[in-house]
Simulated scan of single mutants.
Amino acid sequence: MNQKPRILITMGDVAGVGPEIIVKAWDEILAFCDPIVVGDPAWLEKAIHLINKNAKVQVIDEPEQATPLPNLISCANIKTADLSTVKICDINASAGKAAHDYLIQSIDWALQKRATAIVTAPLHKEGLHLAGLDYPGHTEILASRTKAPEHVMILALPELAVAHVTLHLALRNVFDELSVERIVARAQLLENLLTKVLGRTPRIALAALNPHGSDGGLFGNEEQTIIQPAANICKQQGMTVSGPIPADTLFLRASQGEFDGVVAMYHDQGHIALKLLGQRRAVNITAGLPIIRTSVAHGTAYDIAWKGMADESSLVSAAKWAVKLGS
């Protein structure tokens, strides 16, 4: 009998939807992997009670102690900030610190090859900052802890993946952060990921930055001076690359199957399009790390957290991607 892959699921911000979606997704995820929650057993108990699931928490200290079952949710009890004063749906420094510590422990276990992959529930960026942790989000923590020199956030659906050249920064700073080298590096990471998943050379498109691709320089010149030279280098390296293509037509063409992957120039250019296409199926993948990490493609959702309303679909999809990438 083949052993199922061990997947670490970080609880994220306990005040948000993380605990709830983990409990809701547990049975479905358990069918194809051995999941272990990395977080706080007491908050997991609260989520079990919230959705009235017939299950108990198995509190463990090491991944090897876990024996996950439909009625037994294994939870690695991470010693971190005191969560007794955390209120549901409220930004809190202790919750931010705890979410960070769950992730750090999971990264270390994955680096030690004690798990196949990490799947992360959402944390709250303001909570991180209140805790004195100067990271914009998961991606940057992962890159720092694993010492990954090149990494990229990829939002993925089974039919399309989008890599982002720039990520968590003010829109006014995007232009200064774009470079030929950065675009090429992101395209390479996207190609590596999709080649593994598809088993063939992927078709990748580079999004233009300016409206209408700048219409020959009428609305900026980044297409001519940065994105087109990057496309040329990608082609010289053997990649199947098109672009720059105006984003308003690119994502329509991609949704119709013309491309397997898109390199977006900034956060919302990629996120809005892919989340509209994928709805709750989208998954966040950090490519370029020495470990496998996937995540839900949504936030803490304080507006619906702890009401039994949260949808677990993205977490299930993230776990499936983690297993696929780890196989």
Rank of each mutant, 00 (worst) to 15 (best):
R6S: 07
L8T: 12
I21P: 06
I22R: 04
W26N: 08
W26D: 11
L30I: 07
P35V: 13
P35M: 10
I36D: 06
V37K: 05
V37M: 09
D40V: 04
A42I: 07
E45Y: 00
K46V: 02
V57L: 11
E62F: 13
E64D: 14
E64I: 07
L69M: 14
L69Q: 15
N71I: 05
D82Q: 04
D82R: 02
S84R: 13
S84H: 11
K87L: 15
I91K: 08
N92H: 14
G96I: 10
L103M: 15
A110E: 01
A117M: 02
V119I: 09
K125T: 13
E126C: 06
L130R: 13
G132K: 07
L133R: 06
S144H: 15
K147S: 13
K147Q: 13
A148L: 10
V152C: 15
A156Y: 00
L157V: 00
T166K: 03
H168M: 03
D176H: 13
T195G: 00
T195E: 01
G199I: 03
G199Q: 12
R200Q: 11
R200G: 00
G217T: 09
A231I: 02
V241Q: 00
A247T: 07
L250H: 03
L252F: 09
S255V: 06
Q256F: 06
G261V: 07
Y266T: 03
R281H: 11
N284K: 03
N284H: 09
A287I: 01
G288T: 04
L289K: 02
R293A: 05
H298N: 03
T300G: 11
T300Y: 08
W306T: 07
A310V: 11
